[in-house]
Design a protein around this nucleic acid. Structure first.
Lengths: 233, 233, 233, 233
DNA sequence: AATGAATGAGTTTTCATTCAT
DNA sequence: CATGAATGAAAACTCATTCAT
């Protein structure tokens, strides 16, 4: 009845987009294949022409998210741009990406929830996605430290916090649309880079006898000359 | 046959704990009432003596999480303690709370995912929980600013970032147990208060000799012991 | 709604019997689980309390048939009965068994059809059932030959014919209820034992130059003394 | 794209042969139109250009089998040949026919199973086929009795046994390819004509120098070469 | 109170058949 | 004629919930 479809992968994309919209609206668990088909304007059975199963659809949604994430990480390699600037761009584009496709954000949380419970392997390997995410940010932070813009001793833990701040803000926005997403990227950057302390007041309120916090040196004087070359060791 | 139950609410708690364990293991979507019953060591039908429905079980898990969160927010009202320190305690106890009940933390993501899609009643009002969470943190930040420890002009957006950093770190730990949860609380505080710039003091938070919440070691497998020193580029 | 069932395996038997009735009426392929449930007077889902899947039901039907067959084979071991007599009983009871449960006969054909197409193994191993069937008959034939009632040189091929005659008659009765099943057992025995030739006329119409038929000796004289002892070697 | 089909009925035959091959391999119940199309090397929809439905395909397979059977029955009318010999030829050609088209034989069982359950039209009237089959054999038996080769009083029941022996042997061969089909025709004739008693002549059928049907060797794997000599009890 | 058999609505998935190209 | 995407009516199977015991 419906006219014959020309492009197989175009149809696949259409269905996937429809699926993501429905996932965002109802969540994975509450989404039936029929809902996806209805959203795509096709018959239930037709979904199976493009996806072999419901799980296949989930995996594709994951892949799409991973793909978008990879796009964001592209900002880490811009040439001739200070690492701090690249980090700012990265944060901004991460937020912008998801703000552009709010559905993906909603799906993201579902993926977090679904990412567990399948020890198998490939399809929903959120751990790897975030590992790479953190790795990229950590690399940027170390570069920036090398360039003198950030203090030395920065590594994975700090990257975890930066990545966490981004994702955590997105989650809050998701839970509560009243949270202003616009501007949050800059706030994240501002807070993470400059902290919240009174300006210039580098006064640690107290020493650190046995704190588990991994900080090697305290107050290492201001401005350590800005090296701009490629992530010099 | 089984001896009569002593306490109704004790039984309810037992079942809820069993449910949370199973939710954490399999996710809410994949958890059947029978799984919960088996975990609790009772018969399927008996679950309904304590909970009116499957969703009621999820709502109860939410309530437990909300309860724990309320406990964490108690730190904001300590008398005679600088706001900055109260904030530090808040962050630490938030992380410690979830590290203490990893199952509940895992369920948290399911709750995020389930929190939407039920406009009718509001058994899972995650928005309100996080609104209060942010409000408390924002209040603390403003107090600290008033005490001169933080720069002025700090408000909700910054609170969103702080809260986001906490939750975002937890999510990463959930996705990937190799992420070292221990120490992340202090890293969050350190990053958020002092920032990462080279001109900011990498001040660790004050050690808390009598921390109100026992920061149990989460023993997150390998990688838990982090490399200090500048992890050279 | 329905009263609680006391005996698990009794219920299983009930369902299996209902299933066999429906299989007989409609055939495997055309039988839906719901049909079986309706025949058993229970709800669709209740079938799954006793059988894990539709295939499990098929396997059980097969097992029941195999069980009945085993019962028939019991006649081969009667003590103090000439092998020829035991053979007669075997044939009669094989026919009687299926005439008693016409449903099973119909199912049998479905099993023949289903027995193929699953190289796997166990559940529908019709080959083994018939191998044993033939083996038992062949043993009986050899015994009878040893007792002097049948001519020597009789073996598996003849057993195949005897078994085939039984099954083939049943199939014809199945295809066409007008075929008189009663009496067929004796006809089978009569034909197979005495042949159809003119009485006593042992006149072979022609010699056997290179016929592939495995006959070692021709016309070995009449009556070789009847040994009645237990299957003497 | 493909060159225009020369002959409608040739195409129909091609598809039917493909269908029979697939039916034999998977059974009718498990065979999808697409499987048949694939086996025939055409597109799914094209099957419908030659057959009106899936059932039509089965009916056509039945028709082919009925056609082959009719061919076999042709042996009953040979002029100037003793009825006993015509019977022998009939049995031999029945077996040879099916051995020649093993796929069709395998489908036969499916047809037995499917022959029931469709009272409406009568596309699969197995009853009639076997009725005619029996009738022809019975006629032959009576003729042979008239010619003095068989004892008098022989009729339908005996014909049922003879036909049954043939079909029953074929079924056993289908269930278990180790059953030696070659030679079974002669064993059937031998057993049915002379019986197995020691006072019966174990007369093999007359060798047929110019057998009308080429008894191709079915080469049924191991066990095909049977052990002659009395396999002692 | 506790149990677990029974229920049946709800979902996924398959596949015969149609028909626009 | 040939094709294969599209359709939607089945059918298997699941599982929350009920309720007789």
């Amino acid at each position: 009845m419906a006219p014959k479809r020309v492009d197989r992968s175009a149809r696949r994309e259409e269905i996937l987009s429809a699926a993501v919209r429905v996932f965002a609206r109802q969540g994975f668990a509450a989404t039936r294949i029929e809902d996806v088909a209805a959203e795509a304007g096709i018959a239930k059975g037709s979904v199976y022409l493009s996806f072999s199963s419901r799980d296949d659809l989930l995996a594709a949604a994951f892949a799409r998210l991973a793909d978008r994430s990879a796009g964001v990480l592209g900002h880490t390699t811009a040439e001739g741009v200070p690492a701090v600037e690249r980090l700012t761009r990265l944060v901004r584009s991460a937020v912008a990406m998801l703000a552009d496709e709010p559905e993906l954000t909603r799906v993201m949380v579902d993926l977090w929830a679904a990412g567990r419970h399948r020890g198998d392997a490939a399809p929903l390997d959120m751990a790897t996605v975030y590992r790479e995410y953190r790795g990229a940010v950590a690399g940027l932070l170390r570069e920036a430290a090398g360039e003198g813009d950030l203090r030395p001793g920065i590594g994975e833990p700090e990257a975890t916090v930066v990545v966490g701040a981004i994702e955590g803000c997105l989650v809050q926005w998701l839970m509560d649309p009243a949270v202003p997403l616009a501007g949050l990227a800059d706030t994240v950057v501002g807070v993470c880079l400059s902290g919240l302390r009174s300006d210039g007041a580098a006064s640690p309120p107290c020493p650190l006898p046995a704190a588990p916090v991994p900080v090697t040196d305290t107050g290492n004087g201001p401005g350590a000359g800005r090296t701009q070359g490629p992530s010099g060791a």
